[in-house]
Design a protein around this nucleic acid. Structure first.
Lengths: 240, 240
DNA sequence: TGTATATTCGGTGTCGACAATAAATATTCA
DNA sequence: TGAATATTTATTGTCGACACCGAATATACA
């Protein structure tokens, strides 16, 4: 899988080649949206973005069109473009689709992986284990996502891989929102589940891969659910 | 579901309101691509389209961006935009995803449909049965697609509905390509399968809906496969 | 003072023009 | 004549300007 291109953070002073404009704007905005650097629901001003990136409005618009196609921004005709709000009423559907894609992609990876792909997945699993040790929450969220995207790619079905990537990215925003404080036990469970998943893919055990993926999905859905509904009345008391 | 807007065929002479430009271009091009009016792989010239629609290149480009996001056109940077070719090597993956989406959306429809949605599905089924009687192949392909999209909408999961719609549209191109001559038995089978599907959704029988959807998917995959690999050596003889 | 209408204003949608790019073609030189 | 290089050509990527839209504000009227 392709990681974040270094060109992404190019400022207005940097000269860009033809055709790099849209790409850079697109990548940068995408990251900032998934990072929550750009708050869900916040307005996106074409003119300001144009100034910021040192380009005219045309490439900005095209980048926004692309983002709109992926559902990362929403365009209100003749009015605004806003960062896609997090759609809480749709969360059950989101969880349903996410779980199914976990299962299908992991199954297919077990069936179709090459040795090279297996190695790439293993590398990401090791990276994940490292950032868990380092208690680096943002990195955990990102590497976890990349781990599963890599598995989806090894499954070699681009329809599933695309949908799954979209869902994982949306999940990234949810986790960022709610999983800001480190929790001791959960990441360890994930590391173990990833190990099991990797092992099942390695020995091409499709049914085991399916079971583990299902369990992993359940675990993650439980986490997001718990995070969202977490009791935070301690803070409310202080503010009274 | 929204059907084709009548604005789609607006020519250069028609005055369009602000904001209608991109929409009209997008819809028209989308239909022509799925119709095979625009051949897969054929080049798309921004200037010619601009002249044809009586707008400047800007709205054309934005429509093309949107189409590219859906995979209906492919942009070669600095060079061409072409109508997305039909990806034959990916056909097995396509069939796999299509079958899964048939099952999932039909299951969900059985679980979540309202009475209004059921009525809408029934209407489309009747329409399908009519065009089968009339032996109108293009209409069959289109109404069939709308029937399943309606079911997907009744399932109320936009992730599945979106992917399924994309897959059905891609399937529409395949069927157009290969199913030009009317076959007597196949459409009758589909009508029956649709009836069964409708009945299962009506009585909210999830497992039956799943079974029927799976069988229906298998039937369609068989048809496309057979159409593609059909023996046409009769023509080859004549041309020798 | 409260409601209906006019005006301003921030921001988008579209346009025509120009610059950059890569393929196609012409030119040079052995 | 043939390969390497320069030139042309067709088409895209980007720009700055202007018209248009809808909300917010100001104004008029009862």
């Amino acid at each position: 899988m392709s990681f974040d291109p270094p060109v992404a953070a190019a400022g207005p002073e940097t000269k860009r080649k033809r055709g790099q404009g849209v790409g850079a704007v697109y990548e940068t905005l995408k990251h900032e949206i998934l990072d929550l650097t750009l708050a869900p629901g916040s307005a996106v001003d074409e003119v300001k973005l144009a100034e910021r990136f040192g380009v005219s409005r045309t490439p900005i618009r095209e980048a926004l069109f692309k983002l709109a196609g992926e559902g990362l921004v929403v365009t209100l005709p003749n009015r605004f473009t806003i960062v896609a709000p997090i759609d809480f009423p749709n969360l059950p559907q989101f969880f349903d689709a996410l779980s199914l894609m976990y299962r299908v992609t992991t199954r297919l990876a077990a069936a179709n992986r090459t040795d090279d792909e297996l190695a790439a997945i293993r590398d990401l699993q090791q990276a994940y284990s490292k950032v868990v040790e380092a208690r680096d929450v943002p990195a955990m969220i990102e590497v976890n996502r990349n781990f599963h995207v890599e598995i989806a790619c090894a499954g070699k079905n681009r329809y599933y891989a695309e949908l799954f990537t979209r869902l994982l990215d949306e999940g990234r925003r949810l986790l960022r929102l709610y999983y800001s404080s480190y929790n001791d036990t959960l990441p360890q469970i994930y590391v173990q589940e990833h190990e099991d998943m990797l092992a099942a893919i390695a020995r091409q055990d499709i049914e085991a891969a399916d079971r583990i993926a299902q369990a992993h999905a359940d675990q993650i859905v439980r986490q997001i659910r718990a995070s969202i509904t977490e009791d935070r009345r301690l803070n409310a008391d202080i503010n009274l």
